[in-house]
Design a protein around this nucleic acid. Structure first.
Lengths: 141, 141
DNA sequence: AAAAGGGTTGACGTTCACGTAAACTGGTGT
DNA sequence: ACACCAGTTTACGTGAACGTCAACCCTTTT
């Protein structure tokens, strides 16, 4: 039974962050929970939850909140309505291009580290051949 | 004519960063230029340049300097010599695993944004069909 | 000898992304 | 009515990653 609307600390708990973090993202314009007018509490629905997971994903990937905000603003139909769609689309293409470049760079980095890793692994193998352990090395940590 | 040893500001210029940044990385233990004993200046060879590019790559990908330092320390034969190779290798495997996860997450993010992008593109197409521009829309920016 | 052009070491300032604490408010159980 | 809990605002604190500035060498040019 997924409640459609949850409180700030519930949402925070669910996503393993603190309420403060959520409020901060709102303060930065990344979230807009139901909190208008004369309501004393913030309530978060599926839309805000989706945004938050997007934000957290972006953070894990090393994007700044400003960059993430740009992505979210692109992804937000309402906000973009009435804006020049051509520009928006072109801009989105640029961002996607950058994402692809980032992926390639990550793959490159992984390749580098993999190389060194293999060197080490072989070095380890040789050592174990030279002076193997008395008892067959136990596999438990 | 690639000089094997360059000054700090030369290196900074080459990599589009500031000398301060380079000194900071040294202070954090990420770089060890020739600066021992009784030398008044720092000099950077190919080894340090390689490290620096690795650092910058890591930064672009959102890793903290602490994380990057871990990678570098793995990648550094001298420093690891005498250390428990088994642990090093195991640890490296964990890092590589994390890298792979990050790649997957990036691909996921790109997928999400691509979806939204296509929605927008189609929206734009429809609009242009409804009320096409007087003159056939010119394709130049 | 004096000035100029890098390089060096502090040391303090700054931005981002929150952490933390205080003081207040609003509904809820007893 | 009162305690209690969850949420809110306000504000100051913090760690990472540098920026900026001052004051002090060397070395080279004039």
């Amino acid at each position: 039974m997924e409640q459609p609307l949850v409180s700030i600390s519930n949402l925070a708990q669910e996503l393993l962050i603190t309420p403060r973090t959520i409020r901060y993202y709102e303060e930065m314009g990344l979230l807009t929970p139901l909190h208008h007018e004369k309501m004393s509490q913030r309530l978060y629905g599926p839309r805000e939850r989706a945004r938050l997971t997007l934000i957290l994903r972006g953070k894990r990937l090393g994007f700044s909140l400003a960059e993430i905000k740009e992505m979210i603003d692109l992804y937000d139909i309402d906000r973009t309505e009435g804006l020049q769609l051509e520009r928006t689309v072109a801009y989105g293409e640029k961002r996607l291009q950058e994402l692809e470049e980032k992926i390639q760079e990550l793959i490159l980095l992984k390749g580098e580290l993999t190389d060194y890793h293999q060197q080490f692994t072989e070095l380890l193998k040789k050592r174990n051949q030279e002076r193997p352990k008395k008892e067959d090395a136990p596999r438990q940590q």
